[in-house]
Amino acid sequence: MTENNCSCEENNSKNEQLTMDILAKYSGKKGSLMPILQEVQTIFGYLPQTILKKISAETKMPMSRIYGVATFYSQFRLQPVGKNIIRVCHGTACHVAGSENITLALESKLDVEDGQTTADNQFTLESVACLGCCSLAPVVMVNKHTYGSLTPDKTKKLIKKYEQKEN
């Protein structure tokens, strides 16, 4: 872990530099909050509070407004994402097939609420609309893999596999 920390810090300062570059690019341009937030999110994977503060200081836009915009659009994340993203489909077919229970099961297994990331940063749990494979409902996508015809129990087992992969 120690080495990791080191490179993290390096990464951080590199990322901050990238943020400053973005801010410089849009400096003085009106209506540039959206692209700034989008570009910053591609660097960090989410919108860290410290970076939003920096944006506020540089653009003279109030924090309250930036936060308002960041929470208005679903494309923005305010929490870091975990290593694995679990997307539970809540489209019509999946809903009918019991996706609600799958989310509940995952919430209790991972000890997070929908939309949150586990304390160990391994998993982010999300709800999404139709994933386009309704015949397999209910469907869950973990990272790039799609799993169908799930039950709460099957889903829990599935997640276990990802946990084991970690270790």
């Binding site: 939003l52 109030p62 924090m63 309250s64 407004r65 930036i66 936060y67 929470t71 305010l78």
Partner: peptide, 27 residues
């Protein structure tokens, strides 16, 4: 003073501070 704004969207909209913090940490 710009301490508060609308936050979130749809049914969740609420008047709030950034990150829902106490007003004492805002402007």
């Amino acid at each position: 003073a710009f301490a508060i704004d609308f936050t979130y969207r749809g049914f969740q909209v609420q008047v709030g501070t950034d990150y829902g913090t106490s007003l004492k940490n805002t402007s």
